[in-house]
Design a protein around this nucleic acid. Structure first.
Lengths: 154, 154
DNA sequence: TTAAATAGTTAGCGACGTCTAACATTTTTC
DNA sequence: GAAAAATGTTAGACGTCGCTAACTATTTAA
């Protein structure tokens, strides 16, 4: 345990068992959100939603199509493959868990941004622990009331 | 509140008010750790500690020297400037807070790695909330005992 | 005190993921 | 159905931060 090694942030991200970069995850999650109703999205909307320029989206769609996560054809609509849907859904769920967690902790500033940043960095195991803890706190509402008082003192 | 916008992870990191990239922070924190006793460190040791090749370190030292956070001269020792020390210390404290927090949550796998990843992503405000929550939990040891039981059920 | 070992630097490459500018396609509108 | 508007793509640049290969400097030890 003592012999864990340090790596730079960049290295951890690269090492990450998942083969998806943080950006790839961002795009997948957003496609999933945008496609919930219609079933698809487009370069333009995706770029706008992520605050990115359209060419960045096009480039990423090619990459995601290559690894079989999205269905994409020039000038066409963007949809998620089955695998892509699965991942997109999991990413969105992860997002929601973290968001709720941060809110419980009393984070009020830029919750969305904080969520977006954290969600890419944690392992499944950590997410599991967080999820568990959120469930625990929801199960014991008195704790949170107590915590609110504690915050006020601090 | 509803109108928060999404950005890709990369953009959040770049936007980050702090002008320090994640890598810069990694180096600063590690220099601070390594220099605690002797007051300095060297390219070789720093590279080894971060699991990086020496040229990467040299390159980064030049950058950090440019922005006045480290004192660095070719073939010489590496020390932190006053400002660098201040930041390095804060980074290390942040690290320790998050590490403790994760342990409380029951994270047992790769705690170091998870800490390293998270520490670069959260804002001061979020860190503050976490710190606060850790203090709260330490103040109410029964809660953690209760949580341990809850975990076992799950 | 010089040869060998260790440490450090320079130069240049590669992946990623942005961007802009220029061009192509599709859709809308009159 | 042709011109205008909106959308999408290609090409190429850039910054960050890893890397290796080759070279330079310093330290150690015989």
């Amino acid at each position: 345990m003592e012999n864990e090694e340090f790596f730079t942030f960049r290295e951890y991200m690269a090492k990450d068992d998942n083969l998806l970069t943080a950006s790839m995850q961002d795009y997948l999650e957003m496609i999933f959100r945008l496609a919930v109703h219609s079933g698809y999205t487009r370069t333009h909307d995706l770029a706008a939603a992520l605050n990115v320029q359209p060419p960045s989206t096009t480039k990423m769609m090619k990459r995601l199509a290559e690894v079989g996560l999205v269905n994409y054809e020039k000038y066409g609509v963007i949809t998620l493959s089955e695998k892509g849907k699965e991942i997109g859904k999991a990413l969105l769920e992860r997002h929601l868990i973290i968001e709720e967690f941060l809110q419980l902790l009393g984070v009020t500033e830029n919750v969305l941004q904080e969520t977006e940043k954290i969600e890419h960095t944690i392992s499944d195991h950590t997410l599991q622990c967080i999820d568990n803890f959120v469930a625990f706190l929801k199960n014991r509402p008195k704790i949170m009331i107590d915590f609110k008082g504690f915050q006020r003192e601090a």
